[in-house]
Design a protein around this nucleic acid. Structure first.
Lengths: 149, 149
DNA sequence: TAAAAAAGAATTTTGTGCAATTTAATTGTT
DNA sequence: AACAATTAAATTGCACAAAATTCTTTTTTA
């Protein structure tokens, strides 16, 4: 019947499950992030700045795997919203330093329930999710490593 | 030290690993899909049409979890590229039927090496990837189920 | 059977992603 | 010092992605 058996069905493409799952999770985040007036990548930027309140655009790009074409306008919107400040480095003026503001710091408290809410929505155990996370992280590093060769 | 211990670091957000991994895989696909003059979601549309050569936009949206705001312009570009045809259903004129063309069929052969190439790039065993796929699919169904409640 | 409700697409708007190009600043080399 | 190479951002252009709105067609129902 099937003359070309090497062609996989959709559900056999593991890339599709990742792609669809990633978007499904963004949909779950949306109501929480809407309340904070944030988009998902903006939230990720804040997560990194809550850990360390000043970073360069280059650092953010490496951490989040995003390039300047994405980050520059995104950070400008965040600055307009008062969550961060963009300041040229005085020593090396090519570098743009991103600082979190008081308002950005305050959001940490309001956002603290988000991870728990998301966890609940998955309907999975902590152990199971940790295992998924560990596996996907391993795959991610593998893929990023391959790409740089 | 940390006054707010419920705030997770970036690598503890399992959503981030999925988000980043999904984009990393798209980057791996790009060179292969560039050769076929396809984007990733366009490739997915073709995969579904290779399985079954005619579907409605509604069906495609349900299978791929994409809405018409994404699909309508995407399918118009694919029609302009000669890969599909869009025809109103004669019985129910609200319905738009998507047919694969001869040119779209021919791409199946040219694309048949893509899954294997991607598999190689992951550096993981078939068994391991099948397990990831199974787990992520389960998570996806869980998330989609939750969303509909 | 006419009005209301529902269904399927299309459109509009906003915000990513990413490749490719450009600009400005710094470093390295004669 | 002069010039090439490198680095960090910004810009440009195209293609998603998703919510909200509108439009058309079909179905339901009073």
């Amino acid at each position: 019947m099937d003359t070309n058996s090497q062609n996989l069905k959709l559900e056999d493409h593991f890339c599709f499950s990742l792609y669809a799952c990633s978007r499904a999770i963004l949909r779950l985040y949306r109501p929480y992030l809407d309340e904070l007036q944030l988009t998902y990548p903006q939230y990720l930027v804040l997560v990194t700045l809550w850990e360390k309140p000043q970073r360069t655009i280059k650092e953010l790009g490496e951490i989040l795997n995003l390039d300047t074409g994405t980050l520059t306008p995104l950070l400008k919107r965040m600055e307009a919203a008062g969550l961060i400040e963009r300041r040229r480095d005085t020593v090396d003026e090519r570098v743009m330093n991103i600082h979190i503001t008081q308002a950005g710091q305050l959001l940490q408290e309001k956002a603290s329930c988000v991870p728990q809410s998301l966890f609940d929505a998955t309907g999975m155990s902590k152990k199971e999710l940790d295992e998924i996370n560990e596996t996907i992280m391993r795959l991610l590093h593998q893929l990023n490593g391959e790409g740089k060769k």
